[in-house]
Amino acid sequence: MTRAYLLRRLLAVFLVLAIVTFAVFAITTMLPGNAAIMILGEYATPEAVAALEKQLHLDQPWYAQYLSWVAGILHGDFGTSLRLSLPVTQVVGEAFVNSAMLGATALVAVTITAIPLGALAALKRGTGMDLGLGLFSYLGTALPEFVTATLLLVFFAAPQHGLFPAGGFVAPWENLAGFGAHVVLPAATLGLVLMAHISRQVRSEMSEVLSSDYIRAARLKGLTEKRVIRRHALPNSLAPAIAVISLDIGYLLGGIIVVEEIFAWPGLGRLLIYALENRDLPVIQAVTLLLAAVYALSNLLSDIVIALLDPRVRYA
């Protein structure tokens, strides 16, 4: 990995984010309906509407609005939430932390289960276990989150036994066990789809690596099967899985919106739905931009990790 490669990738991330700011702004501005009327209600007097439009700079041309918004972002100021009358940074910041905890839990849980399962399926290729894992995977991919979520709620949060709470949130710094209990079902919902996806990827890559010349060479050197798998096969099967995980983060960001709504998890997803319903433009813009930034940065991170795992990857 060279300095130039890193710098080029970073510049690309910034370019992407710049384009995203414009797209986000354009979409929110083009949304039908007038934000001032939405806030004041349909019986507001024209004077009141005009006054609020002036206060929100809605009377200015679009490019002036855009530039002042971007200038604000560069100073760390995303404006003030129209509905909550709080700084957007504070509102979005809290939601982001909550979502990040949910997303990270799902991702970590998926990674540590999907990779061994995929490797196992590749090693037992063609056996009943492989078929079972495959079937499970296809079910996981085929079912949308709201179905998985409902099934999980029925089986694990039914009032008769109440294994897990059906929704809500407890901050881990207040009550770690409480957080754990609340995070299981939403994280499992998010994870099931990803697990199918990642374990399939690991399986196919691992199968290919296992049939490679250097694995044959390693076996013909008399190495133990344990070493052949752990040292020779597995590390080389992971790079594509990491690429998939980073792509899956995009999927996760979408899934989080549904899952947070179902499980009443106070994160970015719920905030976004709330902001959309109430036409809270500054919040919509900030959340969308943040989601795009997370996606772009996670892709950059995965490229760096892949380059570290495989010494042959230098420039892309």
Binding site: D213, Y214, G222, L223, T224, E225, H232, N236, R312
Partner: peptide
């Protein structure tokens, strides 16, 4: 497995595929 590599070993056709690229 105990005999391979110790009592008999093998040299392969293409060294660029018979060596593990990441080790």
């Amino acid at each position: 497995a105990d005999i391979r590599g110790r009592r008999m070993s093998m040299v392969f056709q293409d060294p660029s595929t018979s060596l593990n690229p990441t080790i």
